[in-house]
């Protein structure tokens, strides 16, 4: 089937066969590899995207279910040559180790700061509870967002 949807603000179509996840469609059919494929069961958050305004794991969305929907991936959170404040904060704080989990953290944090511009540390931790960093670089990640929230030291 052909799926038509709005991806990062642009009308997009993709061809899918069989029960394919949105994640696989984004990576393999559309050619946007920013969303990462790791656990494929919604536990690691590395494939986080925003679907019709809701932060979700794209591995748990059926590709055909986004017909007519709006999807924002990590590629769409900022303009081509600029960083989103969330990305800048991570860059500043050195909140990246191997980088595999970073896109998911970026999308989840953008979603957090859109609804809550100055989250507390525990709000940051709760909002990112669905994103796993196996380098266990959480300290720097949390510090980055404390800074952005104006709570850093």
């Amino acid at each position: 089937m052909i799926v038509s949807f709005k991806l990062n603000g642009e009308e997009t179509t993709a061809r899918v066969t069989g029960p394919l996840s949105l994640l696989d469609m984004l990576r393999d059919e559309v050619g946007l590899p920013g969303s990462k494929s790791a656990c494929e069961q919604g536990e690691c958050g590395s494939c986080s995207i925003v679907l019709d305004g809701e932060l979700v794991c794209s591995c748990l969305v059926l590709a055909g279910d986004v017909e007519g929907s709006e999807v924002t991936t990590v590629e769409g959170v900022a303009g081509a040559d600029v960083l989103h404040p969330v990305q800048e904060a991570m860059h500043e704080a050195g909140a990246v180790q191997c980088g595999f989990c970073t896109p998911g953290f970026v999308v989840a944090a953008v979603d957090l700061f859109e609804s809550n511009p100055s989250p507390t540390t525990s709000e940051i931790k709760e909002a990112l509870a669905g994103n796993i960093c196996r380098c266990t670089g959480y300290g720097a990640i949390i510090r980055a967002f404390e800074q952005l929230a104006g709570r850093g030291t």
Binding site: L60, V61, G64, D65
Partner: peptide, 27 residues
Amino acid sequence: ALAGGTDLMVEVNFGHTRPENVVALRR
């Protein structure tokens, strides 16, 4: 039937099920 996908899609991703016809209920 497919609602939020948090159960069914895990089964699909791991090849435990391959539904031919899916009724997507999210919207």
